[in-house]
Design a protein around this nucleic acid. Structure first.
Lengths: 245, 245
DNA sequence: CGACATATTGAATTGCATCAATATCTGTGG
DNA sequence: CCACAGATATTGATGCAATTCAATATGTCG
């Protein structure tokens, strides 16, 4: 059993996400479900490599996933090869839960890099709930977090201009991934420019241009897929800059 | 006790929303919670008029709401008076649940017209769960439906052009409100052009122009806030028209 | 009726997409 | 180790969809 810091000792993670921290796998609430099978080790941990899919849009809801390490993108497709990346996901985040009602996934999930993933068979959920009565409450918590995140993205897509979107995106990433790293202001993008564009509702070229502009202005330093935030103040200012007013 | 059609007899409502239909108030799953207080009547039903707020963004999570009739908009605000309407809500829909984890509402809710709303004190949720063990599972269901809806809106905002957005919006509205009305292809908009624009991420004027264009082409008939869909085929074709390809 | 919100329509502007060309990176096999 | 091919990224030039600004019309309600 690997010792891990308790939730209270890890201020990097958002409060809402860590009431239960599972010492077995170092992950938050969701992993607690997996830790409770009596063996002390998470069952069904699997490795996915870049491009491998966890599930596809329309697939029957069979597993709930928990990301242990790496990163995953979720995307919604429509007709005419148009794809929207609805989210990028990192260690500690649950995936697939939103298929609960419809019994099929409303989005696809694909690994962005080599990632370790726990899977829970949904048929075991009721069963597990017998030993963990609060399990559904945990699922409510996780889903409610997701709704509020999604609504932030809706706000971004509906009201922000290109540069604001990208600044907002970088700040969010730094909070989620850089905070765990050695240099909290520096991190590596596991997704391509095209994927960032697909997530923020803009063209790949626009991502490039704005990143270049932020780099030239000294706001960030960009080398390949490595980003260092030099001036968080300025970046924040860009996000909520001039009202369209 | 007013007799109401069972879920199976009301094909107008989406499947995912009606496994439990509460005879007491005619509403779906959420209202079942309210029907189970032993009195046979929903407690704390209140009337809100156009412009009155159910809750504000940032307010402490104190009630879960269920819309019995009328309509409500939810919106997220940022700096610089920019506002995004994240959703329009009609009879049978739950509101405020997404505040569960953070313990404060991430959006504001405001009545678009005179509306009847049930309120459940969140402090009673645990309590209620004792008589209704499946209550948390119901909440998971409702939240998972909401996530999938939100992801559809994210797709729309990220990938569709103005005319497609509006066509998609009208089709969605007709499914949600017109189906309950006498003429299933005709309905009245409870929201202004500006509000539609704020929801779809476009300017009020653009909404006007495109509505006029759809009217002139015979696709819809528009009189004030009354919409009649004349050619659903064509409207659907607009939604998934030319790939940006 | 008069005041104010809501809606419509036109004209000018612009932010971003699109098209296009080149550069750079990554992995593979000789 | 280098050369090559394909993916990814950058940068420039051009076009257009949608916003913004502006003016008028129509609706709503005291």
């Amino acid at each position: 059993m690997t010792a891990r810091p308790l939730a209270e000792e890890n201020p990097a993670l958002p409060k809402a996400c860590i009431p239960i921290l599972c010492a077995e796998c170092g992950m938050d609430r969701f992993c607690a479900l997996l830790g409770l099978d009596g063996t002390g080790t998470a069952k069904r941990a699997e490795i996915y490599r870049r491009g491998q899919v966890l599930f596809r849009q329309g697939d029957t809801f069979d597993y709930i996933y928990a990301l242990r390490s790496g990163s995953v993108k979720t995307s919604v497709s429509g007709k005419g090869r148009r794809v929207q990346i609805t989210g990028f996901h990192f260690a500690g985040e649950p995936l697939g839960l939103s298929a609960y009602a419809k019994k099929q996934y409303g989005c696809a999930a694909e690994a962005l890099e080599t990632s370790s993933v726990c899977k829970v068979d949904v048929n075991r959920v009721e069963e597990i709930a017998r030993t963990v009565p609060s399990m559904y409450a945990e699922m409510v918590t996780m889903l409610s977090v997701r709704v509020q995140q999604d609504e932030q993205l809706i706000f971004l897509l509906g009201t922000r201009r290109a540069e604001e979107r990208l600044a907002d995106f970088l700040i969010g990433l730094s909070r989620r991934v850089a905070s765990r790293a050695y240099f909290p202001t520096q991190f590596r993008l596991s997704m391509s420019r095209r994927e960032i564009g697909s997530h923020l509702g803009m063209a790949e070229e626009t991502i490039c241009r704005i990143l270049a502009r932020l780099h030239d202005s000294g706001c960030i330093t960009l080398t390949r897929r490595t980003v260092r935030i030099n001036d968080m103040e300025r970046l924040s200012a860009i996000v909520s800059s001039a009202p369209v007013d």
